[in-house]
Design a binder for these strands. Structure first.
Lengths: 342, 342
DNA sequence: TTGTACGCGTTATCAC
DNA sequence: GTGATAACGCGTACAA
């Protein structure tokens, strides 16, 4: 592997000049610049990123810790992230923490050791106190959180307005004639429980009921685990109520798909006998029949924004205060709430 | 941030001794070792991985290029990989190449620049010629491919015996009474086409037909794109044949789920009117009703083995010859081929 | 059993 | 415009 020295001697200049050429310094004469360029190509020289990092104290990589990569929402965020980072010529260190809080510490340390220039925390694995420690120990490194609201100076949270999302989802059901709207909520503890949207969706649901003058019935609120089976079970319970609901707002798509299955098994005809709205818009939501009406999370935007924001903060330095960016979920209407127009 | 020098002066020894303590050299006296340890803790010293890398020419990270992270099969492989690597104290550089062949070059170069200690190529994005160039330019770096058969010296391919898998899937259908077994195959070009299993599954299908004395009917073989919609469409075509099949072997689960949907829509009752076997065993396959019988890919094993193998090769040096490790897909029987026992 | 000194490939600061 | 040269933090002969 050719080094800068090789290029230098080959083109009869000093390493300083070669470095200058590489970094487009403005003071190099055109003739030497050309000579150096030629030498670079001839030797097939590539700068040694490690040496550069040692000197500049930058890793030119960013780290991402994701609580569960197999969650389709997260998968897409990571994918967008990967592509956005490539544009900025940065690489991505990925850690899946598998909802195990104890792994958070290990993962954070790993990121620190690798001298990442920025950190992205996706989901709910990393405990606030741990992150606070990271902020303290790596005061230069900007941190962005996705779908988790940290109240820590320096952390920038990318959130989706799930109160509004829950509201819109529920209102959509009411506008389509539902009068007894149930909700299958996310878990109050365990995996996914500390996610930003978890509590908010419920709040939006309540607001929509209120606004429409529908009385809230606690029996209509079920709690699931964000997983398929729990949605199926929850809907079965709802359907066996003395007065079952005529519509259900489900806090995420995986549970909604489970609910869809349960509805089918019960012989219900969607959307006539029962309407269903999910949350996330995972790829599969458009593929079932009927298709699943859902609140689409701006997955691509989240990934891309995280990359851009991080890039900016790496240049300008980490902000000293906490901040939040709110994004909207958009209603995607499919067959589970509205019959296809003929 | 404390450096080795700090630790050295604080404990009244030289940096060499500190280094020795860190690397568990056997010649350090217990007393000095203890003293150094204390100093390490007191100063909260952490070795600088970048400096170490510069010296040792190792990055202590491995790179993975995945052709499509949103493919549930790949997602799980990557997840297993991430966890296995943590055990080995290595970190993971991840690139999604999104089925774009041109990105392969960029990604490979990125990995090279980061001085990864090993490379894992998952899926079919990286062209053989490109990989050959990498092998040449980075002669130390072991390379492992998952589900793609490269015939390049030094590359170790982790494959699943899909001929056998296709055979077993088809035989399972025949054993359950099918006499007219169709197949929905993967694409012959484009995304996923150069995957190892693509052609093999078809071969296994043919072998099983042969062995059972069933005559092959070209009209019963459809070609899909590995995606949901294509499976749905393909099954619809099959069902509208003059003599439709009574069972279908589908080359992956996503298409099989599409086929399942089409079967339902046509009013077919599975498994009585029609049997279906998929391939991969993605999480969703167990969740539909009826559940999807499928050939389970050893996703976890693939990820873990890749990590272990790489680890070993990093120690012993990259093998000089090409090699293949074959794994088995296992039949998972669900409702789409066998009625639940009461 | 321990310390000294050099080099890894860059970047950055000067002096020319 | 250009070239020496000193860091960056660590590993490791080699000397003691």
């Amino acid at each position: 592997m050719a080094t800068m020295k090789d290029v230098a001697s080959r083109s009869g200049v000093s390493v300083a000049t070669v470095s200058a050429v590489i970094h487009d310094a403005d003071w190099v004469s055109d003739s030497t610049r050309a000579r150096v360029q030629r030498a670079i190509e001839a030797t097939n020289y590539r700068p040694n990123h490690v040496a550069r990092s040692l000197k500049t104290r930058r890793g030119y990589a960013i780290g991402a810790i994701v609580s569960d990569l197999t969650n389709p929402f997260f998968t897409e965020v990571v994918r967008s992230l990967s592509h956005a980072l490539r544009q900025h010529d940065r690489s991505l260190f990925l850690c899946d923490s598998d909802h195990q809080f104890d792994l958070g510490a290990t993962n954070l340390r790993m990121m620190q050791d690798k001298q990442v220039d920025g950190l992205i925390v996706i989901g709910d694995t990393v405990r606030p106190r741990l992150l606070a420690k990271f902020l303290e120990e790596a005061p230069e490194v900007p941190v962005i959180a996705i779908e988790r609201a940290y109240d820590l100076d320096g952390v920038c949270c990318l959130l989706v307005d799930s109160e509004e999302g829950g509201y819109r989802a529920t209102r959509h059901l009411i506008e389509n004639g539902a009068t007894r709207v149930a909700m299958i909520n996310g878990p109050e503890e365990g995996a996914g429980s500390t996610t930003y949207g978890r509590a908010k969706r419920y709040e939006g649901y309540r607001r929509a009921l209120n606004e429409a003058g529908l009385t809230f019935d606690a029996a209509l609120v079920e709690q699931g685990t964000f997983r398929y089976e729990s949605g199926k079970a929850a809907l079965n319970r709802l359907l066996s109520l003395p007065t079952p609901p005529d519509a259900v707002f489900v806090a995420n798509d995986m549970m909604a798909l489970g609910a869809l299955e349960a509805a089918r098994n019960s012989g219900r005809n969607l959307p006539h006998d029962l309407m269903l709205v999910g949350y996330d818009d995972i790829p599969l939501a458009s593929l079932t029949s009927p298709g699943l009406t859902t609140m689409a999370m701006p997955k691509h935007t989240l990934g891309t924004t995280a990359a851009t924001l991080l890039h900016k903060q790496i240049e300008t330095g980490r902000p000293t205060t906490a901040s939040r960016h709110m994004f909207d979920a958009t209603l995607v209407v499919r067959g589970s709430t509205r019959a296809p127009t003929p």
